[in-house]
Amino acid sequence: NCLEGLIFVITGVLESIERDEAKSLIERYGGKVTGNVSKKTNYLVMGRDSGQSKSDKAAALGTKIIDEDGLLNLI
């Protein structure tokens, strides 16, 4: 459970895995996936064609922004 207690938001199109697979992977390792960035969000996983508003909010809140490889490296 290397992601225990961590909260993730996924945005954009992921290249190597589907969004549902990424969500399942995060949950399997103890993390939680939500739909919107908040002060409780630990990581924003940004894929291709992701919206600017979520990354702006993450930056404003100090949320770590990672890509798909960054997510896989956490596991």
Rank of each mutant, 00 (worst) to 15 (best):
L72Y: 12
T34R: 11
G31C: 01
K39D: 10
F8M: 02
C2T: 07
D20N: 13
L25A: 04
L6T: 06
E27Y: 04
T34A: 14
R28D: 06
E27L: 07
S53Y: 13
M46Y: 02
E4C: 01
K39G: 09
V37H: 03
S50W: 12
Y29E: 05
E15P: 15
S55R: 15
D67H: 09
G35M: 10
A58I: 08
E21A: 11
S38I: 03
V37S: 01
D69A: 14
S38L: 03
G70E: 10
N73W: 04
L14A: 05
G70W: 03
E18R: 14
A22W: 05
E21S: 11
I75T: 03
A22M: 15
D56P: 07
I26W: 00
T41Y: 05
E21Y: 08
G70L: 02
I17L: 15
V45A: 02
E15T: 10
V37P: 04
R48Q: 06
G47A: 08
G31W: 01
E18M: 04
S16P: 07
K57V: 13
I17W: 11
G51S: 15
I7K: 10
G62K: 06
Y29M: 12
L25P: 05
L74C: 04
I17V: 09
K64C: 07
I26R: 01
S50P: 15
L72H: 05
S16A: 08
G5E: 03
G35C: 14
G12Q: 00
S24N: 11
R48L: 05
K57R: 12
S24W: 07
D49I: 06
D69H: 13
E68K: 11
S55G: 11
L3E: 03
T41M: 05
S53E: 15
L74I: 05
V13I: 14
G35W: 08
S50D: 09
E68S: 09
G51K: 14
G51M: 13
A58C: 06
R28V: 04
E18L: 01
C2G: 03
L61A: 08
D69G: 12
A58M: 07
E4H: 09
V9Y: 02
G12I: 00
E21W: 05
